[in-house]
Structures are given as structure tokens and as C-alpha cells.
Design a protein around this nucleic acid. Structure first.
Lengths: 224, 224
DNA sequence: TAATGAATATTACAATTTGTTAAATATGGT
DNA sequence: ACCATATTTAACAAATTGTAATATTCATTA
């Protein structure tokens, strides 16, 4: 199921859109302000983001640029009544992927969402993740290579999955640590490093995939 | 340079669009019919396709579906005066990636093209960059020269990549610094200079490439 | 043209972060 | 309680990056 973050302060419109999307089997998280949207984004990591531009507190453009600092891939669609070319250009410049002028047809929104999701390859309906020459079954925590397979531990598998879901972009150290180890004394803990070390060992048969460290920030699973 | 296939039978519009695109450093192949467009597509393999929907002989929709049979990735944008929702949906269903209603603003077209190209490129990352006698693998951060190779650090590699992507033009100091070092105390920090210095050392085997300082502005990677 | 000050280059080194191994500890099943 | 396995800690090695010190280049003005 596709997770949608939908930030829109007009209650009436929001309701219609949310319901339509849910009919089409999207899971919608609706927020009514930019700052609420930002919280939700950090917490839920949606597959696609739909932002109203004009909102109280934090507008859609501001939220979009905050999101882009964190995640350079998640598709972002702007919705707005103010459809001047300047606005559209500004939206794209901030890293938006589409821009719809209100009033819009809900089916067109869905078509545009699906087009972006297809491009961003966020549809992974299949259970198994294909990581270079390897295949990871994230349910059973088994890593396959050719005929052989390695039984990973829970944390090994979760960590690899997380890296894979955000392949080719940085996964922040503090984020992983706070999520896996409940945020305590993450200054000294070196468990993450140890797990990374193990994953690298498992993955060394395929040089086209690499877990690269970005000093001070985190790690990046690079897949060609 | 980006190759654009542009299929449009209205001569006047076609001229305006072609010229605007060329100003923005696109290489435009303009065709006036679907069948001509198909030929051109087969022979020139453009990076992006812009199709008018209503055309004699073969319409844009038909051409798009032929193209999708051949190439499932190249971005396709439809242009049309007939902007009913059915048309838009049909366009997306055929594998189109965007749909613009005429009359449109040329800058909006360009913004949408660039957004799509950026997305498409993400999933076909350049394997290796050829920098003079050197080759840079920007994934593994390895700089090759003849048989030998040097393992670069993440920042070294990113900086070299950035310089290469804008080779022969100035990359602004403040821009690099604010991106790499998060904008803090960029008055005093001399880290960038140190990295430039290191890169020059790595690259000194090939005098035909030079990292030139533009005093007060930034640097320029000159490649002959 | 020489003097001046600002910007840049280079080097060495220190501080910090990360990598790796092995041992210690925790956990869960029997 | 015992065992097997998973995870964490500890210790040290290695790599990356920032800083300081110093030298050099460049542009401007006297």
C-alpha cells in the first residue's frame, strides 16, 4: 500500500481528496498545517507528498524545501489556486515534481501521482528486495545469493532493508540509532558500526553495491 | 547536451518552442508528423520526447505507445489544446509522464522537462566520469588512472564530481561551501581550499586538466 | 612599479569519526 | 540451569576532516 502525506488546510477539499484516494487504495495521512506535515513526514516517511501551497504557520513551499533536505527522492506534488507561472517555476525549483492548479480533477491528481510513483519506482509489490546480485527476504530475514543463503539476524535484516529503501541517499546515523536503540547515549554506542561491518562482509560478493560512510552524517547504500 | 524530440505540426508554435529550447541548451529535433517522429526516435534515441496530440497521419498518443513498446523509460510529455480529463488520463495511461494544456508558458514546459530529466537520470546514474586521462567512479569514489587507482573520500569524490558536472564553467565557492558545510562560518573556513589542494595533487598526472581558481568567485575545472 | 592587503595554496598535524576484532553480556528456548 | 545465538561493549587501528601556521599569488592603489 502506498503511503500518502497530504497537507491541506481546507477541510472540505481535504475530505473529498482523502476519501477518493482511500477508495483507490492509498493510505492517506492528512495534516492541516505545514508544521504538522513536517512532523508526520519525519515520523511516517510517506511514499509521496501532496502539499497545498497556501497554509497558515508553514506554507507548502517551505515544507517542501525542508523535505528535500531530508529526502531527495520522495515525489512532491503541489496544489494551489494561485497558478501563475512564477509560482509553478518556484515550486519546481524547490524540488517539486508536479504542480496542479485548483480546481483540479481528482482523477487527474491520481494519474499524476501514479506516473510519479512509477518513475520513482516506489512500487515494490514483491516481497523480496533485489539488492544487486542478492535478494533479501525481509520477512524471514534471509539473504540469498545464487543458490546459497545466509540467515540474517533481525537487526541485520532491518538495517539492510532500511538502507535499501533509501538506496543512493544518505540514511542518517542519528536517525537509525534513535530508532533502533531508542535514542539512549548514542554518543558512545558502536553497535551500528558493528552491524554495518557485518553487512559489508555479507555483501562483499557483489562489488556493484557498496555501503558508503558519509562522515558525520551516516551511511549510503549505493546501487548502480 | 540534452536531445529533445519535438513532434508538433503547427509551424508557428513549433518555431517558438524550438528556439526557446535551444536557447536553454537543448538540442532539438523537430518533426511535423507522428510517422516522421517515429523515424527520428528510432534513429536518434532522444533523452526526452515532447508530443503534440493532434496531428495528421499518426497522432501523439499512437506515437507514444509505439515509443513505450521500444523504451519504457524515456520521459514523454504531451501538449494539447484538448484538455479534458479523459484526454489527460488517456495520455498517462499510455505511459506519458506529463501533460500540458495549450496555451502553455514555455518556461513551465522547461521546468517540467527538467523535473522529469532529473528523475529519470537518478535511475540511470552515470557509471563512470571520464576526466582527462582519469576516470572517476562516483559511486565507489575511486579515481582510476591507467592501471592504478586511488580511493577518494566521500567529500573528495563529491567535490570532483561537482566540478566535473560543470566543467569549463565557474562553480561558485559560496555555493559549494554552503552545500558541503551547511553554510556556517564560511568566511573563515579553509577546508574547501584544502580539498581543492588535494584534488589537484591527485590530478597532477594529466596537465590537460586543471582546477583553476577564479579569485573571489570560485573554481573552474578546465578540460581540453 | 612598489607596496599593501586580501584571497588562495600548501603542509603538517590534531581532533574526531569510523572500522574491526574479540570478548562480554543478554536473551530465549529447552 | 544450560546452551545457542544475538547483541553490546571494549579496545585499538585506520581513515577522514578541520585547523593552524605559513607561504604564495593576485588586484588595487599609492
Amino acid at each position: 500500500m502506498i503511503d500518502v502525506l497530504f497537507v491541506e488546510d481546507e477541510a472540505k477539499l481535504a475530505l473529498i481528496v482523502s476519501e477518493s484516494l482511500e477508495t483507490k487504495h492509498f493510505r492517506v495521512r492528512h495534516c492541516t498545517s505545514g508544521s504538522e506535515g513536517w512532523n508526520s513526514f519525519i515520523h511516517s516517511r510517506p511514499d509521496i507528498v501532496i502539499l497545498d501551497v497556501m497554509m497558515p504557520q508553514m506554507d507548502g513551499f517551505t515544507l517542501a524545501s525542508k523535505i528535500r533536505q531530508q529526502d531527495s527522492d520522495v515525489p512532491v506534488i503541489f496544489l494551489t489556486a494561485r497558478g501563475t507561472t512564477e509560482d509553478v517555476l518556484h515550486g519546481f525549483k524547490l524540488g517539486g515534481n508536479d504542480y496542479l492548479k485548483k480546481p483540479f480533477d481528482i482523477d487527474e491528481l491520481i494519474a499524476r501521482m501514479e506516473a510519479l510513483l512509477k518513475l520513482a519506482k516506489k512500487y515494490h509489490p514483491e516481497e523480496e528486495l533485489s539488492i544487486g546480485k542478492y535478494t533479501l527476504n525481509p520477512i524471514k530475514h534471509i539473504l540469498h545469493l545464487d543458490g546459497a543463503h545466509i540467515q540474517l539476524s533481525f537487526r541485520e535484516s532491518e538495517l539492510l532493508k532500511r538502507l535499501y529503501e533509501r538506496r543512493n541517499q544518505v540514511v542518517y546515523r542519528r536517525e537509525i540509532v534513535s530508532e533502533f536503540w531508542n535514542n539512549e547515549r548514542f554518543v558512545t554506542g558502536r553497535s551500528l558500526d558493528v552491524f554495518i561491518s557485518r553487512l559489508r562482509k555479507y555483501l562483499k560478493e557483489d562489488p556493484s553495491i557498496q555501503i558508503v560512510n558519509i562522515r558525520g552524517l551516516g551511511y549510503k547504500l549505493m546501487v548502480v
